[in-house]
């Protein structure tokens, strides 16, 4: 899933302080799972903002709404009738949802309420970690199912570097060395011979380097 984290409330206050009427718009997908932008977080942020502006002597109307998805026009249409009444919308969706909402509602400022962090998973309650950088050319078949692009701080395809120590990365004693994990997996799979195959220079044109990307699937187009 896309993992996001809450923005500091001061940052959100700074964006909306001149408004009289705002909508906090949550998303029921990834940001709900990572507890940054679902219905619960919409309620918490709305209450915090109400309290803040009340203390400032400002009467601000703050509404709450959470859509099934913000990356889908069908669900974004659900606020079509009410959107115009707001001075601004604070979207707690990921960067995709914020932009998709902005594209649908041209004349209303849309502010992000979260920082979109990475593609990751929940390791335990309150701990999310990165697993994928969407490079567009998956290498997992060759690396024991552990991704060197997202899990090595230098995205080395032929790692580990000389900084791997006791299973940990040179940049932090709390960060596992991705290549130690790969070697552990290759050993468990009895595929250590694969380690010595040189990984060729990667084509990064399917990554960010190639410019904004798209996937076109004619077989599913209507």
């Amino acid at each position: 899933m896309i993992v996001a984290d809450k923005k500091p409330i001061e940052e959100i206050v700074e964006e909306v302080k001149d408004c009289d009427n705002i909508l906090i718009l949550g998303c029921n997908e990834c940001v709900t799972v990572c507890e940054a932008g679902g219905k619960k977080e919409v309620g918490i942020l709305a209450s915090a903002l109400r309290m803040y502006f009340l203390n400032q002597g400002k009467d601000m109307k703050i509404d709450e709404r959470t859509l099934e998805r913000q990356c889908d026009q069908e669900y974004l249409d659900e606020i079509r009738d009410i959107a115009d009444q707001y001075d601004a919308i604070v979207s707690l969706a990921c960067g995709v949802g914020v932009q998709f909402t902005a594209e649908q509602y041209h004349s209303i400022p849309i502010y992000p309420g979260v920082n979109t962090c990475f593609l990751g998973a929940t390791e335990e309650r309150g701990l999310w970690t990165e697993r994928c950088q969407a490079c567009g050319q998956c290498v997992l078949a060759r690396t024991g199912g552990i991704c060197p692009v997202s899990r090595c701080a230098k995205r080395l395809l032929n790692g580990p570097c000389g900084g791997s120590s006791n299973g940990m990365c040179e940049i932090s004693k709390e960060l596992a060395c991705g290549w130690q994990l790969i070697v552990n997996r290759l050993e468990a799979l009895d595929k250590m011979d694969d380690y010595e195959k040189i990984f060729p220079i990667k084509d990064w044109s399917t990554d960010r380097a190639g410019g904004p990307r798209k996937v076109v699937r004619e077989d599913v187009q209507i």
Partner: peptide
């Protein structure tokens, strides 16, 4: 890190 040290050798 467009390429790594191994690939720089190559």
């Amino acid at each position: 890190h467009d390429i790594d040290s191994m690939q720089l050798i190559q």
